[in-house]
Simulated scan of single mutants.
Amino acid sequence: MSTIPEPAAVLFDRDDTLIENVPYNGDPDAVVPMPTAASALERLRGLGVKVGVVTNQSGIARGLLSREQVDAVNRRVEELLGPFDTWQVCPHGPADACACRKPSPGLIESAAAELGVDVERVAMVGDIGIDVEAAEAAGARGVLVPTPVTLPEEVAAAREVAGSVAEAVALLFPGGEAR
């Protein structure tokens, strides 16, 4: 039996974790859920676990997207995958040196605070190294779900790796019940 406590909240990266990545997507009609995302979220909600999204959206800072377009895409994600308890969006670019852009811990810390959950009881599921790095920087648990764009060194560096979003949830909740 694992000695790691099951999380009270699970946060997800948006692009290439919950939905297929469309670079700088401002079109809600282009939103396509990743396989197993809906079933994984349904399981978490059934267990009473809080769920949220933490996403870098540098297209806003780059002038490629408006915040309204990002919000419209996020609403479509909710239409397809159900409601989230928190949305944390970093609108900054890589050169902005903000505290929220992953791999900085700001988005995860803000989500935990909004959800009323100690960050140590938060898990972060994402597809690239910065997702796991942000979790570790915040003191949360990180699970990597590699895609073809995930670098081999990111997989090697991750403490926990799963083959899909559903497998990540099964790793976080091996007994099937939230504590």
Score class of each variant (00 low, 15 high):
95 A>V: 07
123 A>E: 07
72 A>S: 14
116 G>V: 05
66 S>M: 04
70 V>D: 02
81 L>G: 02
104 S>Y: 01
79 E>K: 10
92 H>L: 10
110 S>A: 15
119 V>F: 09
93 G>H: 09
91 P>Y: 06
109 E>V: 12
76 R>D: 03
120 E>M: 03
103 P>E: 06
116 G>F: 04
115 L>K: 10
98 C>A: 14
113 A>W: 05
75 R>I: 01
92 H>E: 09
116 G>W: 05
95 A>W: 07
59 G>F: 03
62 R>Q: 10
59 G>N: 10
86 T>P: 06
67 R>L: 08
83 P>T: 12
67 R>Y: 04
97 A>V: 02
60 I>S: 08
63 G>T: 06
80 L>F: 02
88 Q>P: 14
76 R>W: 01
96 D>H: 13
122 V>M: 10
99 A>K: 09
62 R>K: 13
80 L>Y: 01
62 R>P: 02
112 A>M: 07
121 R>K: 11
74 N>C: 09
57 Q>M: 08
118 D>T: 08
117 V>I: 12
91 P>Q: 11
86 T>F: 10
94 P>F: 04
73 V>E: 01
113 A>Q: 14
56 N>W: 02
74 N>G: 15
111 A>W: 03
122 V>C: 15
104 S>L: 09
110 S>H: 10
108 I>L: 13
107 L>A: 07
94 P>I: 08
58 S>G: 15
92 H>R: 11
117 V>H: 12
114 E>S: 15
57 Q>E: 10
118 D>W: 03
77 V>K: 00
75 R>F: 02
118 D>M: 07
122 V>F: 09
90 C>I: 06
77 V>E: 02
111 A>R: 07
88 Q>K: 11
108 I>F: 00
115 L>V: 06
94 P>E: 11
63 G>I: 05
101 R>K: 10
113 A>C: 06
114 E>R: 14
119 V>Y: 07
89 V>S: 14
95 A>N: 12
107 L>P: 00
85 D>R: 10
96 D>F: 08
68 E>I: 03
55 T>I: 06
122 V>P: 00
111 A>M: 08
75 R>Y: 04
100 C>I: 05
66 S>W: 03
60 I>N: 06
88 Q>Y: 06
122 V>S: 09
96 D>K: 12
109 E>T: 14
63 G>H: 11
109 E>C: 02
70 V>E: 04
107 L>V: 07
73 V>C: 09
78 E>I: 01
69 Q>F: 04
112 A>L: 07
84 F>Y: 13
69 Q>T: 06
67 R>F: 05
117 V>Y: 06
80 L>H: 01
